[in-house]
Design a protein around this nucleic acid. Sequence first.
DNA 1: ATGGTCGTTGGACGA
Length: 257
Amino acid sequence: MKIASWNVNSLKVRLPHVLDWLAEAQPDLLGIQETKTLDENFPQQEIEAAGYQVLFSGQKTYNGVAVLSRLKATPKEIITDIPGLEDHQRRVLGATYGKLRFINLYVPNGSEVGSDKYTYKLDWLDKLASYLKKQLQEHKNLVVVGDFNIAPEDRDVHDPEAWKGSVLVSEPERAALQKLFDLGLHDSFRLFEQDEKLYSWWDYRAAAFRRNMGLRIDHVLCSDALKKKCTASYIDKEPRKLERPSDHAPVVAEFDI
DNA sequence: ATGGTCGTTGGACGA
């Protein structure tokens, strides 16, 4: 089973790239973030025509998440919020497909360390950890994907000195992500030997992609049981090379299930 | 990483 995550930065603009990538990569499950699309405008027909069933939770202008599946199972136990977290921002979409629990997240960016948005991010991650702790007790096979807006380690940052202490890499953010790892959620990417300087996001500015000035902030996390069945994990840079790309690349993990 | 661009929107704001 092939599971992926992609922050598309507007599904309206990126739909052609998404449809091309579905045809090319053929993921079984894809979590999409930053659809920036109201549910009433969601391109459901086009995605279903590509052979995928789809769930979505959107809002105007900002945020918005969707889950695409070509599995036979009907999604159950659908959630669009973290229990106990009052949030009008559409950042969460979870569903159970057969024996697999799948949660797609668009973690808050945090803007700047010390800002209100940063506080919101840390609080959001704290509530998320409580929820995922319970989810792990209820679901042996749990996959949590998304744009986490956190680079776990310095090797996930093109220039750690320049980025030191700033949003996306700050210690409180990394501690919040580490807390998820400590619950027994594994960064699938690090289960395998990887080349150096592999990232999932590059700023649109300053020709950052061409210069590979990126961060690895998009992740596929998996529970213990799935860690044992994970056979590959990688970042597909190809869509980032296209005309009018998202600033993020799809991240992929494969499981022998 | 001085800023540098996108996307949404119709002037900023968020990332």
